[in-house]
Amino acid sequence: MDDRCRQIDALLTEAMTRELSPEERCSLDQHCASCPDCAAAYRALLTTRELLRNHRPEDDAPPTILRENLHRRLVEEQAQQAGKRPALGLRWKLAFGVSVCMLLTILGYFLMPAFPDKGDEGTILSRTTVDAKEPLTIKITYTADRPLTDVAVTIRLDEGISFYSDDEKLRSLREYTWHGDLRTGINEIPFVVTVERMGTHRIRTEASYDDYRHRHDVELQAEQRTVIVTYLSYKKRPL
């Protein structure tokens, strides 16, 4: 690299951070016309500047699959955290157990006639917006820490929602019960519905297993063109 190339090299570095003056550009062009090495460096730097100029921040948006995978891992994480609550000492366990029994007796007396999930407004698991024209695929997800047999999941539809099917009988059902086994890990129970009118409707589901029932609701807020789908989970309760 001779002295002239060194001067041009410094100018090339400058060209990355500021606009060169017409004189500087002219001197650069003249030198590059006779020096292939500096010309290649100049072209590489121009390409880099062009790439960065044309790059938009949203080009680096993560793919949708990342959100889906994250959601699945968060649900697993939550289930694991629920199972890892620190154990209490025996004395505390007894005291806690007696207090809970007393409290449940008192509460039971007052709340028995009410809906069993009163007081539990559910935890929002996810919310998405979809096209109102398309049938909606709903997936109720259960994370099991061991295989579960003879599980029943009852799906009840509000007025304004129907099961999507070619079979007229299935379309007219308001309630459907799925029977099957759950394997360790994530289990999805999918079904397809159509929303027939605008407004807020609910799909109420209840899984029964091991003397427990576990409620998940799906709220559908149907507007002119879109439906906001919200998945809610309720605390597991004894049957």
Binding site: D9, L12, T13, M16, A40, A41, R43, A44, L45, T48
Partner: peptide, 11 residues
């Protein structure tokens, strides 16, 4: 910039 110049042939 130095890295781009060093790898100029790749562009």
């Amino acid at each position: 910039t130095e890295l781009v110049k060093k790898n100029k042939n790749l562009f």
